[in-house]
Design a protein around this nucleic acid. Structure first.
Length: 888
RNA sequence: GGGCGGCUAGCUCAGCUGGUCAGAGCACCUGGUUUACACCCAGGGGGUCGGGGGUUCGAACCCCUCGCCGCCCACCA
């Protein structure tokens, strides 16, 4: 006998180990099986499982398990990302904590060795946490973005793009993170609104004839000013164009130039131009051939290009000093408080500095075109659809992608420099040397580029590099393009778009046919979870408290097309209860001898109740299948929930009780077999979402084993394929009538406060023969569920009987002695009012000639029927009310 | 400034290509020791579908407009 409740704590680890040991997570070898593949969004190797991962990976597992059961060769390929900056930070922090040793106190090789050491010890914790969720990844294929195969892929891509001139080295302004002393890409810059001020500085004219006032929020950059720009149409300054100002402090003459860039409406209309420290100024500088004077070093300290007194000063100290000096010089014309946005490094949190350096760039504009086209043509589709707009918006306005990082942890850039600075890009040093030999005619020492690649450069290759590319592996041939990508929307640019670009470029095919963007999980109040707010929900803790299945079902059920999910413990608890409900239904079946019968054919059952539940099962199987095919996870979950709880448990099990406990052996046997068969279908259909509970039930209902035609795990059992032929409309009509009679009858009893102990008969007053037969045949169930003594036909409702109308039939409960007449009058009046409203609305519609003329015929007919039914029901109730009044 | 989402019962949300579409779960109220389940069962109350306008025989659903809420992108003169 099953325990009273399912115990996830003991079952989950046991089952997971058993699945994993059995090899069931690997795709089956059968070459005729259709492939299905998902590559995991590789979590940072430093990461630990958060609720967003739980959502994302639950959905991947649901699809993987579903497709595996459907007989496909299903591969869910796991792995982790080396996460350049994040990991380097973690290890640096750890080093600092341990022995005050900084990365800069050791060689690059020593530091990288430390990181690997760290990775071996504590990296990849997250992949173990994924197992707790039940993730059926093929761990034998697990990859890491820095492992040898993936590194080879990175080098090959770099070299090829370079040869194709889609990757190049360029000196231009980058977003520089002074905290980490590295360039970062546009996407890693976060705009934060902060308090700041404008300082208005007067720059004296060289000829002593006056001054021109400029405003700035970054006074320290004036040390690198090389011009002052005014708008050509700005009459205030026309006469100054071509003259020069003498830059204070620096004491350098710089020209006043005319350019379209300054906005005469803003500030003084004159703008200081610092090409080396401002993106707009850089462009202006190019136009006018201005020198770009870089006045900072990689720590954002003032460098030797500035006057002596400033050298070595931090940018903010320099700022204060510049302001002070302007004041002393009597050239400070004003200070104005402002609130403005300042770009910050998303990892470091410090303001980034536009910085003039040599970096490697990818020509994303070119690579973007096929990616745009693939989505436009639907080769790759996005769910929810609106993400496609976001995708297009970014790709159509894409800028060159800065891919070099001044870090140590990552893929070292495969470029070598000769003594004269000539660059040789090659997959190996040997090749680079060979190239150099060609050029120089003799051997020259080469120096490899110190930088590493943006982490996302390797992530972009993930869908094919993990399958073995550039080798022509069997996996690559079989599983690329992958079937679907499930990811969070916040990395659509970082990752999804770049995979599209690289996948199309190197494989000639999209990396995935469909992308599902899962929502962002927030707390119950809708706030973003964060450690500082203390509202983080730890998925592992939730698994401990409610079981993995409850969490999985919750996340699945809530993952509609919303942008975010508000998660509460209460929800999870509700779905935990759902699991228990099913568990107990199985327990009921077990206690009542419900086992699969050898050779059981659902199409051949005879009892209407059984024909009905078989049909409902077929409908549900179809609904769940279709939903999962469309990534409509919430629809799948709600179809399951409804069927299991509100159909199988609430009605089928209840209605079957008299049969199971009754005398008719044939009916009993058929019902036992049917109940067990349906329960099996339920386990199968629910398994992708609740794998543990269903697998355990499957094992514990082993009495059905032989008849199942499948030995071994539920997770490898075939997905139900139930034809529409199993739906029997006649059986449906019968059960619907019984259900409606019980519902209505209960409502009557409750509203009139008929005591539970009362056992009146249910009288069938007006009904067609079929209805009469159905109700009488179901007397056992109705008796039990409606607490009536019998179901019997009667020509007319006796005095004081309470009538109610169901599917056009009039039934009555003779309970006059128990009831409060006032309550009954109120009940009847309420019913009548509801019908009256319906009648009015429908009649109004039907009296509209335009409606009759223009609405489709079936809609008109439908309304006519509806009106007739409502009028009939109302009439019956009114006569009942009339009789009631007569009695009083 | 540009773009995107959302605004439906107290709360969280379903309602796809306009015609039983006004729903579900939770919460709430009432009643239940019916041997599957109190992590349960039965019944009940509750919404002029953000405001306004329009298209239509008919709009929560389509169009326009306004209003909030949230997100993304751009933007340190």
């Amino acid at each position: 006998m099953l325990d009273k409740t399912f115990d996830p704590k003991t079952v989950e680890p046991r089952l997971y180990a058993a699945w994993e040991d059995s090899g069931a997570f690997a795709p089956k070898d059968d070459p005729s099986a259709e492939p299905f593949s998902i590559v995991i969004p590789p979590p940072n190797v430093t990461g630990s499982l958060h609720i967003g991962h739980a959502l994302n990976n639950t959905l991947q597992d649901v699809l993987t398990r579903f497709e595996r059961m459907r007989g496909k060769a299903a591969l869910w390929l796991p792995g982790t990302d080396h996460a350049g900056i994040a990991t380097q930070m973690v290890v640096e922090r750890q080093l600092a904590a341990q022995g005050n040793m900084s990365r800069r106190d050791m060689t690059r090789d020593e530091f990288v060795a430390k990181v690997w050491e760290w990775k071996a010890q504590s990296g990849g914790r997250i992949v173990h946490q994924l197992r707790r969720l039940g993730a059926s990844c093929d761990w034998s294929r697990e990859r890491f973005t820095l492992d040898e195969g993936l590194s080879a892929a990175v080098r090959k891509v770099f070299v090829q793009l370079y040869k194709e001139k889609l990757l190049y080295r360029d000196k231009r302004l980058v977003n520089w993170d002074p905290q980490f002393q590295t360039a970062i890409s546009d996407l890693e810059v976060e705009q934060r609104e902060v308090d700041g001020q404008y300082w208005h500085f007067a720059y004296p004219l060289e000829d002593g004839s006056g001054e021109i006032v400029v405003a700035t929020t970054r006074p320290e950059t004036m040390l690198g000013d090389t011009a002052v720009a005014v708008h050509p149409s700005d009459e205030r300054y026309t006469h100054l164009i071509g003259k020069a100002v003498r830059l204070p402090i620096v004491n350098r003459p710089i020209p006043i130039i005319a350019d379209e860039y300054p906005d005469p409406e803003k500030g003084s209309g004159a703008v200081k131009i610092t090409p080396a420290h401002d993106f707009n100024d850089f462009i202006v500088g190019k136009r006018h051939n201005l020198p770009a004077i870089n006045v900072m070093d990689e720590f954002a300290r003032i460098n030797a290009n500035a006057p002596e007194a400033y050298r070595g000063l931090d940018r903010f100290k320099a700022r204060a000093k510049v302001v002070e000096e302007f004041e002393q010089l009597g050239l400070l014309r004003g200070i104005e408080k402002t609130r403005h946005v300042v770009p910050h490094g998303d990892r470091s949190g410090v303001p980034v500095e536009p910085f003039l350096t040599d970096q490697w760039y990818v020509n994303a504009k070119v690579l973007a075109q096929p990616a745009i086209k693939a989505v436009e043509e639907g080769t790759t589709t996005m769910v929810p659809k609106h993400w496609e707009k976001t995708f297009f918006e970014w790709l159509r306005n894409i800028e060159p992608w800065c891919v070099s990082r001044q870090l140590w942890w990552g893929h070292r850039i495969p470029a070598w420099y000769g003594p004269d600075g000539k660059v040789f890009v090659a997959e190996t040093e040997a090749e680079a040397k060979a190239q150099a030999l060609e050029v120089y005619g003799h051997e020259e020492p080469l120096r490899q580029d110190e930088d590493v690649l943006d982490t996302w450069f390797s992530s972009a290759l993930w869908p094919f590099s993990t399958l073995g590319w550039p080798e022509k592996t069997g996996d690559l041939a079989r599983f690329y393009p992958t079937s679907v990508l499930i990811t969070a929307g916040d990395i659509i640019f970082f990752w999804v778009a770049r995979m599209m670009m690289q996948g199309l470029h190197f494989m000639g095919e999209v990396p995935f046919k469909r992308v599902f963007f899962n929502a962002l999980v927030r707390d119950a109040e809708g706030k973003k979870m964060s450690k500082t707010k203390g509202n983080v929900m730890d998925p592992l803790e939730l698994v401990d408290d409610y079981g993995a299945d409850a969490l999985r079902f919750t996340l699945t059920a809530m993952s509609g097309h919303q942008r975010d999910i508000k998660l509460s413990r209460q929800r999870i608890e509700g779905y935990r209860n759902f699991g228990t409900k099913l568990w107990n239904a199985a327990r009921f079946c077990q206690a009542n001898g419900c086992e699969r019968a050898e050779g059981f054919d659902p199409a051949k059952v005879g009892l209407p109740l059984n024909r009905w539940i078989v049909g409902q099962t077929a409908r549900t199987a179809r609904a769940v299948t279709e939903a999962l095919e469309e990534c409509a996870f919430d629809d799948a979950a709600s179809a399951l929930y409804r069927f299991i709880w509100n159909v199988y448990c609430d009605w089928y099990v209840e209605l079957s009780k008299p049969i199971l406990k009754g005398e008719d052996a044939a009916a009993q046997a058929e019902t036992q077999a049917t109940a067990a068969w349906v329960l099996d279908q339920i386990m199968l259909l629910l398994h992708p979402v609740m794998p543990f509970l269903t697998e355990e039930l499957w094992a514990q209902t082993a009495a059905s084993g032989a008849a199942r035609g499948h030995t071994g795990f539920l997770m490898t059992a075939p997905w139900p394929q139930l034809g529409a032929g199993l739906v029997d409309p006649a059986a449906e009509a019968e059960i619907e009538l019984i259900v409606a009679a019980i519902r209505e009858g209960r409502s009557v009893r409750d509203e009139l406060n008929v005591p539970n102990s009362a056992r009146p008969p249910l009288l069938v007053i007006e009904a067609d023969d079929a209805q009469r037969r159905t109700l009488e045949a179901a007397a056992g169930s109705i008796g039990l569920m409606l607490r009536v003594s019998e179901v019997r036909s009667e020509a007319a409702a006796p005095e004081g009987a309470i009538p109610f109308v169901v599917e056009g039939a009039t039934l009555a409960l003779p309970v006059a002695e128990f009831i409060d007449l006032t309550a009954e009058r109120a009940r009847l009046a309420k019913e009548i009012a509801a019908h009256t409203q319906d009648i009015e609305r429908t009649a109004k519609k039907l009296s509209n000639p335009d409606f009759i003329a223009r609405a489709p015929e079936e809609v008109v007919d439908e309304n006519r029927e509806r009106l007739a039914e409502a009028e009939a029901a109302k009439a019956k109730l009114e006569s009942a009310l009339g009789r009631l009044k007569a009695v009083v």
